[in-house]
Design a protein around this nucleic acid. Structure first.
Lengths: 123, 123
DNA sequence: GTTGCTGCAAAAAGTTTGCAGGACG
DNA sequence: CGTCCTGCAAACTTTTTGCAGCAAC
């Protein structure tokens, strides 16, 4: 049976309240502020479990560590800043993104868009 | 000064002739077939250099090792098969993908689309 | 001949696993 | 009270780095 532990709730809370996708280390550090004895392994175990249950989603871009964010259903457009390497989740999902023209035989179930550029802080 | 070595040309050739994005290990294995003594470190060094010069681009998706493919300019739509975990590069880039509606302050320089689903082989 | 590139091996970074004790229901 | 979960440390995997010899110019 699945148990409701302090660590689990805390990690979920950290991801849920973040305004952008966080790396496992960032998640662990933030959780450590509230619960110093929490281990990095516990963070990874929860991330894996949450990702499997689709409560969080992984987002990453080449050359950077993976990030995780709360899966609130419609955030599928992300912005990667080439200057500071931070990732941002953008709302305003466009409706017409999934291209209709996929080769014969491919079945599209979902999509994700990554934009590259410069964020306001680095402008 | 930059030198033109056998290993460098070979790695570039492997990526260039692949029909889908390859992981560093796949690249190294294919290169080893032609040049058995090539080291994995050399593969990584070339990948890094090529990525910096934008001759190849990294593509990855959560939970999978990174992949690299030849940067021929317009391949920005990829397809990840949820069954076999292979990645495919789709041509037919749609023109209207980059959403115009980004928050104030963000400057978009490029984009990339990842589609998820089932590939023909796994269908 | 110089000097950058390579292969090897060791190191570093990131992630997973084994295990004994503690927390949850 | 039985188990699942946790923290710790060790094991693994993936990527990077140091260095002596080789190869390209």
């Amino acid at each position: 049976m699945k148990r409701n532990t302090q660590q689990g709730s805390l990690i979920l809370e950290v991801i849920k309240s973040a305004k952008r996708p966080l790396t496992p280390l960032e998640i662990h550090q933030r959780a450590s502020n509230m619960y110093p004895r929490i281990g990095i392994a516990t963070t990874y175990r929860h991330l894996k479990a949450l990702a499997e249950k689709n409560r969080v989603v992984g987002v990453d871009y080449p050359g950077q560590p993976p990030r995780y964010e709360w899966a609130d259903g419609e955030d599928k457009v992300h912005f990667a800043c080439r200057s500071c390497d931070k990732l941002f989740a953008l709302k305003d999902t466009t409706e017409d993104i999934p291209p209709a023209k996929v080769p014969k035989g491919f079945t599209v179930q979902g999509f994700e868009v990554m934009l590259y550029g410069v964020c306001p802080e680095c402008e």
